[in-house]
């Protein structure tokens, strides 16, 4: 633990070396995120509800995804640039250290500028909680927190998958962004809005709906099934195949010539 803390401090120091740049990037993150917020505003100037979800409820969706994504991306920043780590051969030196590989990838590369995105998420969720018209109780509060935490893990897993693919190919993998950045965009609205086929896909393949649509049904009293309450926790199962995929990728790591 001491080692990881030290590694983190080194990273923090080097990011803070350029203080101005750090705060400007964070501010930039904060401002750009407003564009998606406004797009929701504009849509609700035309309609009253999306798939029967009200303005406040959609905002709740939006902020949960935003927070989960920003924490997931801040943690998984090293995974996003992992293909660079592999292709430059820097991965070799992680492998000769007696420590967990994933921790070694993420800790020195955490992208703390995502705090801009997170702050926006927090502001929006503060607006949305009273606006959503949900009758809050302790169970629902726990569920909301679970949505954010499990969502963070889900986004982290998606970044992990993208990183793992760079073991197999050195090609550009931008199309995989559909699952990471794309998921953030989709997730702004309740996923049922995209039709049953997409909902099925986002339940059983990439379990985004488990941290968004189903718990939202429970929160808004559209369904009281225990399944809906447990959905975010079930999404954690997704982490196992992801980790397995990473282990398999590790075996076919080719290193760079020297």
């Amino acid at each position: 633990m001491k080692f990881y803390l030290r590694l983190f401090t080194i990273n923090l120091k080097s990011q803070m070396q350029y203080k101005m740049s750090f705060w400007m990037t964070s501010l930039g993150q904060f401002v750009t995120a407003f564009t998606s917020f406004f797009s929701i505003q504009f849509i609700f100037m035309q309609v009253d509800a999306v798939d029967q979800f009200t303005y406040g409820q959609v905002l709740l969706c939006f902020s949960v995804i935003m927070m989960a994504f920003s924490i997931g991306e801040a943690l998984g920043g090293g995974l996003a640039s992992f293909s660079y780590i592999v292709n430059s051969g820097n991965f070799d030196r992680m492998l000769i250290r007696p420590r967990n590989i994933i921790m070694q990838i993420i800790i020195p590369h955490m992208d703390l500028t995502r705090i801009g995105l997170l702050v926006q998420g927090i502001i929006v969720i503060c607006l949305a909680i009273p606006l959503s018209g949900i009758s809050w109780n302790i169970g629902k509060a726990i569920l909301l927190i679970a949505m954010i935490i499990c969502g963070t893990i889900l986004f982290f897993c998606l970044f992990l998958i993208k990183a793992t693919v760079s073991f197999f190919t050195i090609e550009s993998l931008d199309f995989l962004n559909i699952f990471t950045y794309g998921a953030r965009q989709f997730g702004r609205y309740p996923l049922s809005a995209y039709g049953p086929k997409v909902l099925w896909l986002l339940t059983f393949c990439v379990p985004l709906a488990l941290i968004q649509y189903y718990p939202l049904l429970y929160l808004t009293d559209r369904g009281s099934s225990l399944w809906y309450f447990c959905a975010p926790f079930l999404s954690l199962i997704f982490a196992f195949p992801c980790y397995l995929f990473f282990r398999i990728g590790l075996r076919s790591y080719k290193s760079a010539g020297s």
């Binding site: 080692f3 030290r6 590694l7 080194i10 080097s14 051969g89 070799d92 030196r93 492998l95 000769i96 250290r97 007696p98 420590r99 967990n100 020297s258």
Partner: peptide, 29 residues
């Protein structure tokens, strides 16, 4: 992990030290 604890590796072409920090800090890491 158990294995690499018992070996030392030097790659002449690749540094394992942290670039921006004093050597002693790397050693403490």
């Amino acid at each position: 992990t158990a294995y690499v604890r018992e070996i030392g590796v030097v790659f002449g072409q690749r540094s394992k030290l942290w670039w921006d920090v004093p050597i002693i800090d790397s050693f403490e890491l």
